[in-house]
């Protein structure tokens, strides 16, 4: 499977990464090279194999549904690029 320039732009859009037009050919080559290489997995017989999600090999633990943390908005907001009062600020989304 080979990516065309339009697909490279679509992936970049999905990934929310700006890609300048002159960077598309290079990215296209690199991504196709990697995808061509991982294509080798198509030769493995996986019929009837259940997918493995993680390395822990255990069922995820459930915890009590209670509040165990929080209450320090100022410490959280300390790393915000922009804020308005006790909120994160972003450019206007709704006109």
């Amino acid at each position: 499977m080979s990516l065309d320039p339009a697909t490279v732009r679509r992936i970049a859009r999905l990934a929310r990464i700006r890609v300048e037009d002159d960077a598309v050919p290079r990215l296209q080559g690199e991504l196709n090279n990697i995808l061509g290489w991982i294509e080798q997995l198509s030769e493995v017989d996986v019929e009837g194999v259940a997918p493995l999600t993680g390395g822990a090999q255990i069922a995820l633990r459930l915890r009590e549904d209670v509040v165990t943390d929080g209450g320090y908005a100022e410490r959280i907001l300390a790393n915000a690029p922009d804020r308005a009062g006790a909120f994160f600020a972003v450019p206007k989304v709704v006109e």
Binding site: I38, L41, S42, V46, V49, A50, P51, T53, Q57
Partner: peptide
């Protein structure tokens, strides 16, 4: 498919 191959590796 990769998750299935991962199961085979395990």
């Amino acid at each position: 498919r990769a998750q299935k191959v991962r199961a085979l590796i395990l």
